[in-house]
Amino acid sequence: MSYTYTRTELEKSIVLALRTLGGSASRKDIRKEMANSGYEGLTYNDVFGFKVSKNGNKYIPFMFDFNFGIQNLNHIGYVEKPVRNSDIVLTDAGLNDDLKNFPTAEQQDKIDSYWNKKHEEYKLRKNSSETDENSTEDEVIDFSADSSDQEDTAETKWKTELLNQLMQFDPGKFESFSRLLISKMGVTIDKERGVMQSGDHGIDGFGYFTSDEFRTSRVAIQCKRYTKGSVSEPEIDRFKGVMDSFNAEYGIFVTTSSFTDKAKKKATQGTNTVTLINGQDLADLVEKYQLHITPVTIYTLDDYYY
């Protein structure tokens, strides 16, 4: 997922995502909506792709622009002041203003004035502290970051590392990992037909899911460990064809990457639908089911100390 990223202004995309999500959402859900809907030409890799620094650290450049965007929207009155562990909330202006000429000259002047002031404060703090001389400009926690930004960045960091490690798995191990995760989600893997090796039968797993109403459905599983590119429509189409041969009511398609728009559309067509799990969904599910991860406690300083 390593890629070339161009720094960009995300304020308008953030507002559009929040409007779609009803005016209030977590930072994580905002980013997912931005990636899925492609506002202002954004792609999945723009939002979640990572770079590797000279000293081997992995970081997501998009996060810096995203955090700056939240700060800018707050300063011009489009979002309420961010509160730790709370959703980002649009104000009436953020909900209703016409974005055709966004940002206006007046809004841009407010933003520029705000950051000029913040930059002077940052220089004073920098002179009284040390910065890793091996770090790139993007890797240093930007001086806009409040405690909520830093917590969000910490979560993003370990999930990026998780996806990077999953990409290093050989196909057999990734399929085994996917079946383990899906079993945690409530699917009972068929002991005879449920464990398929790469290339066998066109699927990577098979099992059964029983709903709260005690209705049992047959589930086919497909896994693609991609390091670049997205799962395309033909791959979903082929999977659906194999699902038919197993009489599967629905399928689960897991990838470390993402899905094209046509693939997403194909997944919901017909009677045998496919649940799509992209890289970020995968990381969220590992967190939800605590799958081979160890929680740690960290602390951040309150505003009192500043």
Results as ranks from 00 to 15, higher is better:
Gly202Ala: 05
Phe209Lys: 14
Lys228Gly: 12
Asp212Asn: 11
Asp212Leu: 14
Asp200Gly: 01
His201Leu: 12
Ser211Lys: 09
Thr210Tyr: 06
Gly199Glu: 08
Gly199Asn: 10
Asp204Asn: 05
Asp212Glu: 15
Asp200Leu: 06
Ala220Pro: 04
Phe206Ile: 01
Ile221Gly: 01
Phe214Trp: 12
Ala220His: 08
Ile203Cys: 01
Thr210Asn: 01
Ile221Phe: 08
Gly207Arg: 06
Ser211Ile: 04
Ile221Ser: 03
Arg218Asn: 15
Phe214His: 14
Phe209Met: 06
Glu213Ile: 06
Phe214Asn: 15
Val219Gly: 03
Asp204Trp: 11
Gly205Tyr: 09
Phe214Asp: 14
Asp212His: 09
Gly205Cys: 03
Ile203Ala: 00
Cys223Phe: 06
Gly229Val: 09
Arg215Tyr: 14
Lys228Ile: 02
Phe206Pro: 02
Ser217Pro: 03
Tyr208Phe: 09
Ala220Val: 05
Ser230Gly: 10
His201Thr: 11
Ala220Tyr: 06
Ser217Gln: 09
Lys228Glu: 15
Ile221Lys: 08
Ile203His: 01
Thr210Ala: 05
Arg215Lys: 15
Gly199Leu: 00
Cys223Tyr: 09
Phe214Cys: 08
Gly199Thr: 02
Thr210Arg: 05
Thr227Glu: 14
Phe209Ala: 07
Asp212Pro: 08
Glu213Ser: 13
Thr227Ala: 12
Phe214Ala: 11
Ser230Asn: 13
Phe209Asp: 00
Asp204Lys: 06
Ile203Lys: 02
Gly205Gln: 07
Phe214Met: 14
Gln222Arg: 13
Gly207Tyr: 06
Arg225Pro: 06
Phe214Arg: 12
Gly202Asn: 00
Tyr208Gln: 05
Tyr208Thr: 00
Ile221Cys: 10
Ser211Tyr: 07
